[in-house]
């Protein structure tokens, strides 16, 4: 239903008014409409219900709907704000807004913290960090001995865990990122500033009167 192009217009569950989404995010109304073009494509790539399922997200990221990846799973779970197993349009826009160049750095820092807090304890713990390093090595077909992995994790923890209590809290994380700004590199997608250029067909499907 949500996959049929039509001007009058049965939207899928989770569709939200672009005007409201623009007011609550870093996007303009036109940006949100352009994102809807992308959303329609992603949300109908496998299961044609106008919602992004995990397999569709994996297909878009990896060109492979079966590719398991810890970090893609975390991103999917964070985008799925209602935690109902799918990404709706409103969730898609609100979450992507964090990656907009104009979004305050504090929001990006907070999102990255939640991303790495695998077990939702409110802290990034040493075991979580090691698990993520091992996942990255596995994904990259890289081999490092356990001693080397331990050294990397220990060194990073000694720099980030300034209170020395064996876990990284949000305040320590924010300070660590300020000292290592490259850690936020993939939290900004410059392309989002020009999203209407990527999906010019949004003009044809716009439901918003230019005068609004």
């Amino acid at each position: 239903m949500g996959c049929v192009r039509s001007r009058h217009i049965k939207h899928p569950p989770g569709y939200e008014d672009p005007v409201i989404l623009a007011a609550e995010t870093s996007f303009t109304v036109s940006d949100v409409e352009a994102l809807y073009e992308l959303f329609k494509k992603l949300s109908c790539s496998i299961i044609k219900d106008g919602l992004i399922h995990k397999e569709e997200f994996q297909l878009a990221l990896f060109r492979n709907s079966n590719k398991e990846n810890l970090f893609a799973d975390r991103i999917f779970d964070l985008f799925d704000l209602k935690r109902n197993g799918v990404i709706e349009f409103g969730e898609f826009v609100r979450s992507l807004s964090i990656f907009h160049p104009n979004t305050p750095e504090a929001e990006k820092i907070a999102f990255a913290f939640r991303l790495y807090d695998l077990r939702h304890t409110g802290f990034i713990e040493r075991e979580e960090l090691k698990e993520m390093v091992l996942a990255l090595l596995n994904e990259s077909d890289l081999y490092l001995s356990d001693d080397v992995v331990e050294t990397i994790v220990d060194k990073t923890f000694s720099q980030a865990d300034t209170k020395g209590d064996g876990k990284i809290d949000p305040e320590e994380w924010a300070e660590f990122v300020k000292r290592n700004p490259s850690l936020l590199r993939n939290m900004t997608l410059p392309y989002l500033k020009d999203i209407t250029m990527g999906f010019p067909s949004f003009v044809m499907n716009s439901e918003v009167n230019d005068a609004e």
Partner: peptide, 24 residues
């Protein structure tokens, strides 16, 4: 790699490269 920050290593994951979503 032994000198690398663990989070820098992690941030190279393909799963965190959302730019891929916009590739045609």
């Amino acid at each position: 790699p032994a000198l690398m920050n663990a989070f820098e290593l992690i941030s190279t994951s393909q799963g965190l490269n959302l730019g891929t979503l916009f590739e045609k």
